[in-house]
Every structure is written in structure tokens, then in C-alpha cells.
Amino acid sequence: MQSTTIRRAVAQDADRLTHLIQASGAYRGTYASIISGYRVTSDYITRHQVFVAVDAAEQLQGFYALTLEPPELDLAFVADAVQGGGVGRLLIEHMLGQARAAGLSEVRVVSHPPAEAFYRRLGAVRVGTLAPSPPKVSWARPELRFAID
């Protein structure tokens, strides 16, 4: 993996984060409806713990958003071009560190179904299933929890 840095997102990152979501190959076909029209706003970045992974040239590799109340991994995306290279693991490990620093005991994840195995490999435990909520979400979603030690 080339040099990757994780830094706090700033308001000016909003359009790049939105573009990363909209370009995600994981949300084509069946899952496209959940991101249709979704935008990351500068206000969202200001209100939540949003961190980006960038390379030495400041190219966006991925990001996550942690909400503290209630504690939840709200968003997590890795650019298609760098998936499988450790960026996702780096982001989740960083998120767990931020959760620990905030004094959280656990973090909830409502997972994109194809991403469940990824979260489980990193230590999340499945605790349930969320029913579909049409029209945007017509499929069941795994609910997982990361315990913060």
C-alpha cells in the first residue's frame, strides 16, 4: 500500500466525498437506490467525526463518518481503485481509536450486505438484521457492533 494518511475532513472535502459515494461500484444495480441523490454536506462534516484517507498527492482513497450520539459508523467508503489494499482496515482501526478516545463502549454498524464479511473480519459481531425500508432500501441489512476495549 502506498503512503496513506488519515486526517479530519474539512468542509471543502464535501464534494469529493459525495463523488466517492456516487462512484462506488458496490452500490450499482440492486443497491443503487440507497445512494441515489445522497450528498455529503459541509454541515454534515462539521457536525460529525468525519475522517478521510488520502495518499501523498491528497488523492482521496476513502473516508468514514462516526456519529457519537448514538454511537454509529454512519458512512464508510473506499475508492474502488484501492479496495483490497488495506485502506478500509486502516479507516476502521482509526474509527475504533476515535471511539475509544471519545469514551464509547461500542459502535453500531448497519452494513451494506456485501460488506458484512469485511466488518466481521475486523472484529464486529452481528447482533441482528434490519428489515427493508422501502422505497430506498428494499433489502434486509445486517446490524453489527464493534465492542470498544
Rank of each mutant, 00 (worst) to 15 (best):
A147R: 10
D13F: 12
R47V: 05
E72L: 04
H94Y: 12
T41S: 15
A65T: 15
A115D: 10
F51Y: 15
R100A: 10
G88E: 06
R141P: 12
D149P: 14
T46V: 08
S24D: 10
G86P: 02
Q12S: 11
G86W: 04
L60D: 01
V137H: 08
E72M: 09
V82F: 01
F51E: 15
Q22Y: 08
T18V: 11
H94W: 11
W139R: 04
D15K: 08
L68M: 10
L17Q: 03
L68C: 08
T5S: 13
A26V: 09
L96Y: 01
G103T: 08
G128Q: 00
A57F: 03
Q98T: 11
R145A: 02
T30I: 09
E72C: 07
A102L: 06
T30L: 09
R39C: 07
E106V: 07
A53H: 02
R89N: 03
F77H: 09
V110C: 03
R120S: 03
Q59T: 14
L90S: 14
Q61C: 10
P142T: 09
T46K: 11
Y38C: 08
T4F: 02
A99M: 15
Q61Y: 13
L75F: 06
A124S: 07
A9G: 14
K136D: 15
V54L: 00
P114D: 11
A79F: 01
Q61N: 14
R47Y: 07
